[in-house]
Design a binder for these strands. Sequence first.
RNA 1: GCGGGGAUAGCCAAGUCAGGUCAAAGGCGCAAGGUUCAGGACCUUGUGGCGUAGGCCUUCGUGGGUUCAAAUCCCACUCCCCGCACCA
Length: 946
Amino acid sequence: MNWKEIEEKWQKRWFESKIFESNPDPSRPKFFITVAYPYPNMPQHIGHARTYSLADAYARYKRMRGYNVLFPMGFHYTGTPILAQSKRIQANDKELIEQFKSLGVDEETIKTFVLPLNIAKYFHRDLKLGMQEMGYSIDWRREFTTIDPPYNKFIEWQFYKLKEKGYITRGSHPVGWCPSCKNPVGQHDTKGDLEPEIGEFTAIKFIFNDAYLPTATLRPETIFGVTNIWINPKAEYLEVLLNNEKMIISEKAFEKLKYQFTKLEFIKRIKGSDLIGKYAINPVNGNKVPILPADFVDPDNATGIVMSVPAHAPYDMLAILDLKKDPKGISSEILSSINPIPIIETPNMSTIPTIEIIEKFGIKNQLDSKAEEATKELYMKEFHFGKMLSSTGKYSGMPVSKARDEVKKDLIESNKAFKLYEIINGPIYCRCGSKIIVNILSDQWFINYGDPEWKKITKEHLNNMNIIPNELKKEFENVIDWLKEKACARRAGLGTLLPWDKEWIIESLSDSTIYMAYYTIARIINEEKIDPSLLIPQVFDYVFLGKELTSCVGIKKEILEAMRREFLYYYPLDSRHSGRDLIPNHLTFFIFNHVAIFPKELWPKQIVVNGSVLMEGKKMSKSLGNIIPLRKAIRDYGADVIRVSVLSTSELLQDADFSPSLAENIKSRLEEFYEFALKYANAPQLNKEALDDIDKWILSRTQRIIEQITISMEALRVREVIQNILYIFPQEINWYIKRKNNNPNESVMKYIMEILIKLLAPFAPHLCEELWEKYGNNNFVSIEKWPEIDESLINIKLEASEEYLRNVINDTSEIIKITEIKPSKIYYCVAPKWKWDIYLKVIQLIEEGIDPKLIIREIMKDKEIRTKGEAIVKFINSILSLIISMPKDYRRRILNIGIINEAEILKTDFISRYFNAQVYVGEAFEEVPKKKIEQAIPMRPAIYIV
RNA sequence: GCGGGGAUAGCCAAGUCAGGUCAAAGGCGCAAGGUUCAGGACCUUGUGGCGUAGGCCUUCGUGGGUUCAAAUCCCACUCCCCGCACCA
């Protein structure tokens, strides 16, 4: 079959017939479904296909269920990565150019990428074509980008709303910063794509003559254990004025702290070596401590001055031991006066744990790489299990984890220390080559997701929402709990200007929270070509909030009313789809913002989250070079194959594993389905009057599959759906064909295949349309009615009979296999009626909840039965444990069906054909040993083979 | 650290919420047979161990417990993955 031809044919027809364009229709229920719009900075790949294919399959399913489905799409231009990429292209960055090339972008196009907008436009087109080639049922009339002027107006309105509610705040905020680009840096701006991590240090002000030595630490609680101060003798230090106080810090620190403190002035240079041997005073306890040299001190980390706590910091202990071996001019008097001061006790650790841990790791000196590991281990243990000793005054007895915060707070409040920030996973370099530092932005705008009242209503609404899969609800709850202020604007990038402070551009996670509402009016804005300058806040107040329009706004009243109608028809949003990586940000912001801005009845109803796609078990990444561009994959395998591949290998939340061999497999499976279905395309319509039991059986099974798939579909367990259609149910069909001696009733087959085509249509729409047409229909299967169960075709008794037959055949095969008999005669001795009576009676009693131990007594109450005596007891004993271990509904089904005429079922020449042997069915045969005959129980005839 | 998810046969992956038809779906791989000039594809069968009668034994990360019955419920432990923000 020619996939490409079929795909193009149906995509064209769908487009021409406009069946996926949705307009308000009050006579039909609507279903509004959206997916997180993509960021157009690289080609669409298989990974994207999962979320979109899932949403599309869902949209198609809902459409077949009779909903007026709106499934729109937009493009998220907002943000800085495109800018960063463009800069790299300008700089002729080979790596990026190669990456683009390997993803199929031609050289000429890459040249145009010197303009950021060209990147966005190029990939916008790529993404859109990819979506169309995948056959997504999108209403393209509503398309927009987030830099379209009308969208900007919409975002401005949103921000005015947030501001009115008091959810916008302003304050200072530390960010990773490139001093030469003069911009905050994100992961995509750094060499090697490293995310700068910012740590908060406490700088404790040791008194040194008329100045301070600020020692920077992550463990302020160890201030009580300080024995000395470390300085790097090779480093340059400066005397500076910081917030009007004289301090000594390293030269490197001075350069960086300029970005964190506005009042910082140079006074004079000091050599590190000049400080050595002098004394400083611990501001907490007044202890006089010497200043000593140490090589491990990094002048480029924090202040370049370190306090020494040899009892609890391995580096400090090591440096002291090193110094005792090689004093470097320090007097033995000073060195001998330095004794570790324990201030923390930790279970299972000695009083001076550093000695213990140095021995354990076998560390030689302060430059030994193992010191880092030892430090981590000791810090971790002390933090979790340590308690402050009595020598720490008011903190005595406190767990270290608590003391750390307390000491820090107290020191800062009493002006004995101050906070400073440093990159703790550094050094990290900007793509321009400069080292990343911390800058404090003092006038940063935030959305205050920490607002307790806002949190509360958001959480309340979360509880009313349907989250698929449900396990994630808890995760959402936690995210709502710990969200704080979120910086919502930045200085560079594409996007909407903050309307009241045009120096700032609204950041991408903040301009994408309520845009689903914009889709409802985007069609009108696009078609009427509304002048964006007319889209003032009052317009949106009217359209979205129903506020009276007080003044003339320059847009025709009918148009405004149409927008309002359209919004009210589609809102609230019925289903929001994205990958699970968006839970801690976008999806939660989405709930927050809806709750803040819209009236309660318009809050979103459902969120659907799916896992990502792996490539042959590995994460897809540019560096691994294992990204398959979607459009290439479509050419290689076909759209339906990709759709089914990414949706059928794993459950919703799991990562799906894609591979070429999987795709090949799915491809042949789908082709098989197609060829198979084609055989019955011209068969006559089903005639319910002319059916035998086997026909009736498969028709009954077909109703079950409809039921099961519909349930799975509602819960979006799409893997289950596809598995059932493509693998599990076909086994039933095979059995049916076998039972019919390879002569299936063609009208039955046609009926079944029509149903399967419909059930598969949301997943493989092109294939199914083609088949649907071949089946003689001249409408689209995409908008056909989803199959419904035909109760008249359900036959429990036949299903049970067939299951019985299969079990007997299985048992027979088992015996043949073990005994290695080549069967010529098979005898089936079915259970006599009295056994059936007792069997059902026992099940009945167990169902009534009678203690199994009392069953025999209960049955024996019947005089009739008692006459049989011994045989009865033996029989009951043989079936009792079997019956007890049956599932409840299985027992009920047996009671419901009652006695099955086993002999009649087994008297079919199917069995003798199957085993190529003579088959005898009855209650007893002379040829069969008595003992064997006695073994028969209902549903399990005695089998004797010779 | 805080939060979330997970551990099932050679591999992938269902089953766990609602304990019982569970030696445990389905796929891949492997083996045998069929078809084929051959390869591929396809079809059938098998794929924990033992067994000349449909059975028995062991198994669902480890160790306990509840129950007539545990992959499933409870407790403890070990290991793995992901997120923690200004970045889409």
